[in-house]
Design a protein around this nucleic acid. Structure first.
Lengths: 163, 163
DNA sequence: CACTTGGGTTCCAAAATAGAACTCACATGG
DNA sequence: CCATGTGAGTTCTATTTTGGAACCCAAGTG
């Protein structure tokens, strides 16, 4: 396997596949291994908003049935959705968000606030988040619970972890 | 185009393509139109952490050069990265995160905290976020700035916007 | 020169997605 | 009984998108 004559091989690294991401140390990478595609997060959002049946999700998102079927299985296998029968004869199922999925709601809210600022549009938001008690729109901010101060790109410092 | 005999056509809806997402009213959908794939957010994270050159990103992420090239162009076109020369002869460029990208840091922190709870791993995080002043690890929480209370799936109410 | 480096592009094969049709279990209505 | 409808998928083919490797170019190095 020696290079011959003018043939010069440059060193190539072993590439990483999408299927390697779940085992990454980086939390962002692991999140992407579950939610890192066009539709998965939108499916999860719909189930959180009460749209939980196959055909309803498909009609709302206008996604192919094939991909929807695949993503629901994936979300279930990662423990974000639970498939529960809602009727017998014939048995039909709906997909309920688990606590892990519900805990993603604050992240989605922060994401929504970001997009409203940085990816503006004329169209109106199909849903909005209200405070359950006061029924007023929420104004999501990410804070550091240790200091109580808002986290911004200026307030933080990133450090590489050795080991 | 009439159905003939036993042939019964069921009604199919017009599907949505990924390229339609940028015009969606839903902020989560617009976010996915920019960041909704396996690698884009990881690329963005690297540039935020100071890894800003083509080969450096490629070596770290072990992504194909083809896809990296495409994603960098996409991030640039969406205003999240800026391509700036860092040397002449030959001119070489690096990719700097814009303010829009920097404003995604809090969202990434909330996401990281979520994954540490719900997608645990033995491997250690390659980076960690510290408070710039105190140099202690941050404890990110999403709060409603109106009430000051933490946002959880229990504290919020989702309402469909009519119009 | 011979070779390296950074930053890409090009090419082909493999995998994922779009789009439409088909299946299955049962319900309904005449 | 038979035709039709519904919800929840699966199957099929064509198109796109990736993975993986090689190639290209401009300039620097020894």
């Amino acid at each position: 396997m020696e290079p011959i004559g003018k043939f010069r091989q440059r060193c190539y690294i072993r590439l990483m596949k999408w299927t390697d991401l779940p085992n990454e140390g980086c939390s962002v990478a692991r999140t992407m291994s579950v939610l890192g595609d066009r539709w998965t997060l939108l499916i999860l959002r719909d189930t959180l908003f009460g749209i939980r049946r196959f055909d309803d999700i498909q009609k709302r998102l206008k996604i192919t049935r094939h991909v929807l079927s695949d993503r629901l299985k994936r979300l279930e296998s990662h423990g974000l959705l639970e498939r529960k029968p809602y009727q017998e004869r014939p048995t039909r199922y709906e997909y309920h968000p688990t606590q892990a999925a519900k805990d993603f709601v604050p992240v989605m809210q922060a994401m929504t606030a970001w997009a409203q600022t940085h990816l503006p549009t004329e169209k109106s938001e199909p849903y909005r988040f209200l405070d359950r008690a006061t029924r007023t729109p929420t104004d999501p901010k990410v804070i550091d619970a240790n200091t109580g101060a808002e986290i911004t790109s200026q307030s933080i410092w990133v450090e590489a972890n050795r080991d």
